[in-house]
């Protein structure tokens, strides 16, 4: 049976993506930091869909873990591993991060550096095997910086640019790289935050992710209309944009 590795598997979006793969009969390796949640999720997916699941503790901010456990995990999955989905991210406390450098660093490192270092390892693994897919959740927030979440947004912009370059590099090896840019999704990341609209369910995003992976697309906005919303937002001249309260 094919298998998929999910990084950041304790997120609600990741849970829905894992379920989508399990329904289509993929085994799952679930990685994140929270062992208790990983165990519950692994059991749940196994009982619902009857596929093998496995939990793997991994902190992408721990260089030693990224250098050793991640390759070990990829190697253990062996030939059946068809791809990796990365859902690691954090909204962080953007207000606090203005004064608190440690929080700023955590936001940047979690959403950018940690993801990139982990994906480097994944990319080398698949490049050698000359197949596989790498799908990562970036965000529409990376398409234009705004005062309410520009640390998060700039890290996501960096991640999107990294994925572009990686796609270019891996094209020749036949490894696909898919960038997902979700709009607002109904998860704990957004729950209780003001100013949300057009909130999508994690399940709807998961269906879109599964479809994107199995189609030839490179960059996918989910739901689709965010492509057009972001197009309009990007077209607003900076001279006007800087005056807006966004």
């Amino acid at each position: 049976m094919p298998s998929v590795l999910i990084l950041g598997a304790t997120s609600a979006i990741a849970r829905a993506i894992a379920a989508e793969f399990a329904r289509h009969r993929s085994e799952l390796i679930l990685a994140a930091r929270d062992a208790e949640e990983l165990t519950a999720l692994a059991a749940d997916l196994n009982l619902r869909y009857g596929v093998k699941t496995q939990a793997q503790c991994l902190d992408v901010l721990d260089p030693a873990a990224v250098e050793t456990s991640l390759p070990a995990c990829l190697a253990a999955a062996g030939e059946t591993l068809t791809g990796v989905v990365l859902c690691v991210g954090t909204m962080g406390d953007e207000e606090a991060a203005r004064a608190n450098q440690a929080e700023a660093e955590r936001i940047l490192n979690t959403n950018f550096t940690g993801c990139v270092l982990a994906l480097n390892v994944v990319a080398n693994h698949f490049e050698k095997r000359k197949r596989g897919f790498i799908c990562a959740l970036s965000s529409v927030a990376g398409d234009r910086g705004r005062q309410s979440n520009y640390l998060y947004g700039s890290a996501k912009a960096g991640l999107s640019a990294y994925l572009q370059g990686l796609r270019n590099r891996l094209f020749r090896s036949g490894v696909r790289v898919i960038t997902i840019k979700p709009g607002f999704v109904d998860t704990s990341m957004t729950f209780g935050r003001p100013g949300l609209f057009l909130l999508a369910s994690p399940e709807a995003i998961a269906r879109g992710v599964y479809k994107a992976i199995n189609s030839g697309k490179d960059v996918v906005y989910l739901p689709w209309f965010w492509r057009w919303i972001m197009l309009v937002i990007r077209l607003v001249p900076e001279g006007i944009f800087k005056r807006l309260r966004l």
Binding site: A12, A40, A43, D44, S188
Partner: peptide, 9 residues
Amino acid sequence: LRLNRFLAF
């Protein structure tokens, strides 16, 4: 509603 995992059977 988000704490709805099957744990063992």
